[in-house]
Computed example of a mutant assay.
Amino acid sequence: MLGTNHSVMIERQERTALLILLVILISCGIFAWVGEGVGKGPFARNYTSQSQEGELVSFQGIVQTVTHTATGENLILDLGGVTIFIPSPAAGMAEISQGDIIRVYGTVQIWKGKREILVKDPGDLTVLVGPQGKNLRS
């Protein structure tokens, strides 16, 4: 049938389904935006020696030692007996010195039988007080 005009009509159920899908997409976008603004803080638990492997934790302390791994690309920090491991992508952005007071967010992992906090994102490490006691947060 050439030349016949078929108009496309969207049924009521289809319109409802499209509206629901649109509301869900907008809601997901809003939650993602709000989640980025809030950060990991509200979701992280304070780190203890009892924190479970894979748990999102936060920890604040004074950097006792800064060690570069054999390749020099990863960092290992000792914060008074709590080990922080920062892999190369995040470590390259970090400027940390002995004596700095830092706060980190990361996941607990066991490496060679020892518990440590893995920090994957440079934004999950904040130097609160840097060299000579200079407060870097203000």
Rank of each mutant, 00 (worst) to 15 (best):
N46I: 10
G41Y: 12
Q52G: 11
Q60N: 10
E55C: 06
A44D: 08
T67F: 00
L56T: 14
G61C: 02
F43M: 07
E53V: 15
G41W: 09
G41Q: 12
S49N: 07
S49T: 06
Q64V: 05
V66H: 02
T69Y: 06
E53H: 14
G61Y: 09
T69F: 03
S51E: 09
Q64K: 06
T69H: 09
V63I: 07
Y47H: 13
A44E: 09
H68P: 05
H68G: 04
N46S: 11
S49C: 00
Q60M: 12
Q60H: 09
E55R: 12
Y47R: 06
R45Y: 00
V63N: 04
Q60S: 11
Y47D: 05
Q50N: 13
Y47W: 15
V57T: 11
Q50Y: 04
L56Q: 08
P42N: 04
E53D: 15
V66M: 01
Q60I: 07
T67V: 10
T65S: 04
T69I: 10
H68L: 13
N46L: 10
E53N: 15
A44I: 03
G41I: 05
L56W: 10
L56G: 08
T48C: 01
R45T: 05
S58H: 14
S58F: 12
S49K: 11
G54V: 09
V66A: 02
Q52V: 11
Q52D: 10
E53K: 15
I62T: 13
F59G: 09
F43K: 13
P42G: 00
R45S: 10
T65M: 02
T67I: 08
K40A: 01
V57L: 02
S58N: 15
Q60F: 02
P42A: 02
G54D: 05
Y47E: 08
G61E: 07
F59N: 08
T69K: 01
P42D: 04
F43D: 10
R45C: 00
Q60R: 12
S51Q: 12
F43H: 13
P42R: 10
Q50M: 11
G41M: 08
H68I: 12
Q64C: 01
I62D: 09
V57G: 01
S49M: 02
I62Y: 07
L56R: 13
I62C: 03
G41C: 00
S58W: 11
S51V: 04
T65W: 01
S58M: 06
G54S: 12
F59P: 09
